[in-house]
């Protein structure tokens, strides 16, 4: 899955050394909370869109502001916003 961050897939930080398989790819995270949030967010996007797989995710924002994202799958594209608390999605809104 293509991402806009080179560090932690959720927050772009480079501390820590936590890895989890996401969409078949071993993915770097700074900690387990970021991994939980990212994994839950990916599953939520798939549930909302009905997509089988996600090709790319681009994220802007942080914990307190929430995160504005764009995900793609083939020719399909979705824009959404989400927040999490301890890795659990607390707000999810599809924008377009």
């Amino acid at each position: 899955m293509k991402r806009n961050y080179e560090g932690c897939a959720l927050c772009d930080g480079t501390w820590g050394d936590y890895w989890r398989e996401i969409e078949g790819e071993n993915t770097f995270f700074c900690c387990s909370i970021c991994a939980d949030a990212f994994e839950n967010m990916v599953n939520r996007v798939k549930k909302e869109t009905g997509w089988k797989k996600i090709d790319s995710v681009s994220i802007e924002g942080n914990y307190s502001k929430g995160r504005d994202c764009v995900a793609t799958s083939g020719d399909n594209r979705v824009e959404y916003f989400f927040r999490h608390e301890d890795g659990v999605i607390t707000e999810f809104r599809v924008k377009s």
Binding site: G7, G13, W15, D17, C30, C31, S32, I33
Partner: peptide
């Protein structure tokens, strides 16, 4: 502690010191 990926200490470092290791 950051080397062991502890979420709370890493979040504190990200917020107060730097996100870059």
């Amino acid at each position: 502690i950051a080397l062991s990926s502890d979420p709370t200490h890493i979040m504190w470092l990200n917020r107060n010191i730097s996100k870059t290791k």
